[in-house]
Amino acid sequence: MDSQQQYEALLEKWGYLDNSLAAKRRREARALRMQKLNTLAKQTYSFLSKAIKKATARPQTLKQAA
């Protein structure tokens, strides 16, 4: 038994679990949620800025020549 195996056996004996894989999954899931949220924020900003520009544009009144 090498030192790594001894270390892992001691951790298991003491009740510590190796949760590095679970932590990695949580980090990846968090990163994916943040990416989706960032995309949603960009799309919302784009939509609102276009709507505001359209709403604030002055209507052009054309006068007909008599």
Rank of each mutant, 00 (worst) to 15 (best):
Q64V: 06
K13C: 12
E12G: 12
Q4K: 15
M1H: 09
Y16L: 03
D18Y: 04
Q6P: 01
A55Q: 12
Y45R: 06
L17E: 07
A29Q: 12
Q6G: 13
A29R: 11
L37K: 12
Q60A: 09
L62E: 05
Q60E: 05
L62Q: 09
Q35W: 01
A51T: 14
T39E: 02
A23I: 09
S49T: 10
M34Q: 13
D18F: 04
A55Y: 06
A31W: 01
N19Q: 13
L21Y: 10
S3Q: 14
A66V: 06
R58Y: 02
L37C: 09
D18V: 03
K42W: 06
D18P: 00
M34F: 07
S49W: 07
S46D: 07
A65M: 09
Q64G: 02
Q6M: 12
Q6T: 11
L10E: 08
D2L: 11
R25Y: 07
K50W: 03
L21M: 12
A29C: 12
K53F: 07
A31Y: 03
T56R: 10
K54P: 00
D2K: 11
N38F: 06
L21T: 13
D2Y: 05
P59I: 01
Y45S: 10
S49R: 09
Q64H: 11
T61P: 00
A29S: 15
F47C: 04
A57F: 02
S3C: 12
Q35N: 11
L48M: 14
Q5W: 02
Y16D: 04
Q43P: 00
Q64W: 10
T44K: 01
S46E: 08
K50Q: 13
E28V: 03
A41I: 04
L10D: 08
S46W: 01
S46P: 00
R30Y: 10
Y7I: 15
N38H: 15
R27W: 05
Y7N: 13
L40H: 02
M34D: 11
R33K: 15
Y45Q: 09
L32G: 04
A31Q: 04
A41F: 08
R58K: 15
A65L: 13
A57D: 04
Q43S: 12
R58F: 02
S46H: 10
T39N: 07
K42P: 00
A22T: 11
T44Q: 02
A41P: 00
N19T: 14
S3P: 01
E28S: 06
K42H: 13
S49M: 09
R30V: 04
D2V: 09
K54C: 07
A31K: 01
A22Q: 15
S20P: 00
S46A: 14
D18H: 04
E12P: 00
Q43K: 13
L62K: 10
K63R: 13
Q35V: 01
T44D: 09
A55P: 00
Q60G: 02
A66R: 02
E28M: 07
Y7W: 15
Q4E: 15
A9E: 05
G15I: 01
Y16S: 07
L17I: 08
T44P: 00
A31S: 07
K54W: 03
T44Y: 01
L21D: 08
E12F: 05
L32P: 00
K63I: 03
W14S: 08
L32T: 06
A65I: 12
